[in-house]
Design a protein around this nucleic acid. Structure first.
Lengths: 249, 249
DNA sequence: GCAGATTACTGTACGCGTATAGAAATACAT
DNA sequence: ATGTATTTCTATACGCGTACAGTAATCTGC
């Protein structure tokens, strides 16, 4: 009790896989021994379930700690017994969501397979854009999504990349996918707002034309030129990454 | 006045380039005619300047509308006469900041030049991580930063890419850079927190090993394997993108 | 002078995430 | 029984971004 760090947040964490963690402290064996302190009145699973329901029904913006607390019949701060902060709640909510996602049919060729997985990854998140905010915090915490990393790395290795190179390739692809999704989402949202801020292309005037001739030239078609096919870009990236392999002899 | 949309936010916007917009409404010619309504008591420039000072001195987390209002001797809501929301204030703050950034020496070869610009871009933002939050909202609003887009696109064209391809290449590079920065920042922050959440590699147990053999194998070295050299990855991406050029004949 | 019109600002309020302090409810050692 | 340790939950409070409604100060046309 001297000046060391105090232990906090002792309660068992919520397991993403819908199995209650049986409180390792109660009994040394597997049998969930009785807890020591005040008994729980909240069900950790119910908290996550409520959060998920709110998100499903009204979108991620409708989710608030106060709202969840109200709906599970408690106070906001009580939730903090089970989650460190709102982000953690989101993370747990996400972890349970992607459980039932079918894997697509994948090509045999490692290169094509890599591309296909990356495209799949992109499309997956594109359809549930709210996870973007969460994914930054905990990398891909969901085991159900790890097969994509596994596949990409495996393919990279099959094409002769070293272990480090293969992992780097995975991260590079993921970073691009993430960046693309963030900006696409931002642009979509911007387009939805009525009084949009002028695109930078509108700012290009006389004196800029001298310094930025190419941008000035392309400005009128800028919006249109921006739109690319993600698969094409991913293909290019994959080819670039795979070109780093030492040639198979 | 019937059922049309009401006009709001009539006040002239703040010009990023530190020149006051002279209120186009007062007089048709250039002379800044007298304004019509109640005279201003706040200086738009001062608002942005104060925001910038707070960020420089105490970091972006210290910035709040209330704080800025207090420091310019006004009320929070008064600021909303000049900026639509906090994000816009951040955007304006950013726009003025990057003014005095010197361009680096660049290689002549288009490919190397592309890579160099992308690396420069990455390093630039890496040194002021708070801009990440802002950049999503408005694309690159700062004219002083547009030369990088210009250079990249120009190089891509020089290497035989079509106009659309060149713009796509720029966006692809930018999306990757952005994604990389976001995740790197997130990881740095996570590492700084004492009680870090277990990395996914710690979650891999028995049954996972069967489904995810490669990840399980790499798990012990995961943290180390993640770290890549950005320039290497950018080089690979650039090469991949440039390989889409139709061969110069 | 005086009545709008127009612009700039004030006051109040809402819901938010969460820090902090303490109260309540249990198990366990005495 | 009685304290003590442990855990869970409650109460209160802070600062946040900003919606909304009103007030104040100026210009313009009469």
């Amino acid at each position: 009790m001297a000046d060391g760090e105090k232990k906090k947040r002792t309660p068992g964490p919520i397991d993403p896989d819908n199995r209650e963690v049986p409180d390792r402290r109660g009994a040394p064996d597997g049998t969930a021994g009785r807890r020591r302190g005040r008994p729980r009145r909240l069900d950790p699973q119910a908290i996550v379930a409520t959060a998920r329901r709110i998100i499903d029904e009204e979108g991620v913006d409708a989710l608030s700690m106060r709202r969840v607390a109200r709906e599970v019949g408690s106070t906001p701060m009580a939730l903090y017994t089970y989650v460190r902060d709102k982000d953690e709640l989101l993370l747990l909510t996400l972890a349970g969501t992607s459980t039932a996602l079918p894997r697509p049919q994948l090509p045999e060729d490692p290169r094509d397979r890599m591309i296909a997985v990356a495209v799949h990854m992109h499309g997956l998140i594109r359809r549930m854009p709210w996870v973007l905010k969460v994914l930054v915090r905990g990398d891909v915490t969901d085991k159900k999504a790890l097969w994509m990393a596994e596949e990409i790395i495996e393919c990279a290795l099959a094409r002769g990349l070293g272990e480090a190179q293969a992992v780097h390739a995975y991260r590079t692809l993921w970073h691009f996918v993430y960046g693309d999704l963030v900006f696409t989402a931002a642009r979509d949202q911007r387009a939805a707002e009525p009084d949009r801020r002028p695109s930078f292309t509108a700012l290009l005037t006389g004196q800029d034309a001298a310094e930025l001739p190419r941008l000035t030239e392309l400005a009128p078609r800028w919006e249109e030129l921006q739109r690319y096919d993600v698969e094409e870009q991913l293909t290019a990236i994959v080819d670039g990454l795979l070109s780093r392999a030492r040639p198979p002899r």
